[in-house]
Design a protein around this nucleic acid. Sequence first.
DNA 1: CGAAAGGCGTACCGTACGTTACGGTTCGGC
DNA 2: GCCGAACCGTAACGTACGGTACGCCTTTCG
Lengths: 217, 217
Amino acid sequence: MLQLDVEIDTSETLTERQQAVLDAALRLLVEEGDNLTMTAVARRASCSKETLYKWFGDRDGLLNATVQWQASKVRVTPVDRKGLDLASLTASLERFASDWLKVISSDTSIALNRVAVGHAGSGKDDLGAIVLQNGRFALAKRLKPVLEAGRQAGLLEFEDAETAFRTFFGLVGRDVQIRLLLGDRVELTEATIGGDARRATQQFLALFGAKTGPLAL
Amino acid sequence: MLQLDVEIDTSETLTERQQAVLDAALRLLVEEGDNLTMTAVARRASCSKETLYKWFGDRDGLLNATVQWQASKVRVTPVDRKGLDLASLTASLERFASDWLKVISSDTSIALNRVAVGHAGSGKDDLGAIVLQNGRFALAKRLKPVLEAGRQAGLLEFEDAETAFRTFFGLVGRDVQIRLLLGDRVELTEATIGGDARRATQQFLALFGAKTGPLAL
DNA sequence: CGAAAGGCGTACCGTACGTTACGGTTCGGC
DNA sequence: GCCGAACCGTAACGTACGGTACGCCTTTCG
């Protein structure tokens, strides 16, 4: 299990200019993948390499900062857990599913995951940990309270929130992420995402919904 | 969707020596990741770099051949579809799930997927396609007949074998592969794999099993 | 206004690595 | 025994790129 406190408030310590530079680096990362050069970043950001090195130390530092920067931008709003009936629970789950599918199919997510996966082998930096922390684990952190609340309200039945979450994760993501990462063109329109989110949610409810009545499959 | 005919009978066109070299490259790939050098491969395989270039063209050619070589080794035996009752179907599914989990958690699979993902960005070679073809798509090809047979026998109910397969895929894999690729240490003992395989199978049956009787969840 | 700081652009250095070239050795065929 | 082919080991070449140094400009502050 990963620990790693990624609570560094990057948004504070970074000046406007630095953020702009990181945005440039991010765009370049999406376009070029891991084989982006410091010179390219400098040119794209209209800054000197010397500045890059002064600010971020070295290439790994720049990559690290870039990934963290993107991560800090994705901090989402926690869900409000007020009226809780089957309808609102279903809606929440569908929302989560749809959001997640949109994230993992986005260009920047794909690019970031690719880079992080590539770096995961040689333990030079913690890119994998950062991505994981702001992706899969952040999702779990936000979703679990909803699941727990659903259980409290008698709408869901499960032993462990973690395993319930992982099942939901699997039902939503299926083979999408690995296929995208490996370069397969998966058709993911707004419509299919919506359909997949509904399907995954219904399947999840079929598996973990309280058996108080027949649930539409 | 990927097409790509990967039916090149590599095992024929490769001499013993060449296979040995590729095995060395493969081992090195597992240890070093994508940053393996031609010199390292040559040294490990006790061959000259000139030979490497004569045989495989260039570095990408060597990587390609290595991945294909590993892929050709994994050609599995098709399932025999004889007596088909719920018990044997369940057993088959559990077997598939367990095998798949073992594969994706193996060192070589992780290494190969990492390299393929890394290369997927810059469309220089088709490593991603190859890995996908011999991983996820090969699994579908082998599993779908089983699902169809299950439906024929009245044990399963589904519209489309593809979507049924993808659900099974998701239930089995969940977050395991992406976590492993990103460097997370997922505890995957023989026991947990067995448990996960059983759980995934039961969940799949709960979703797609014919409603002739109550199924244990 | 002058000086110092921050930053841009560019030239430069060192190294790692892909690729090529070459001398030496083994081995099958005549 | 001799020849050529295949191959090993290693040296050498070229380049790309990470990292550094320096000249010049702009802004800021005394």
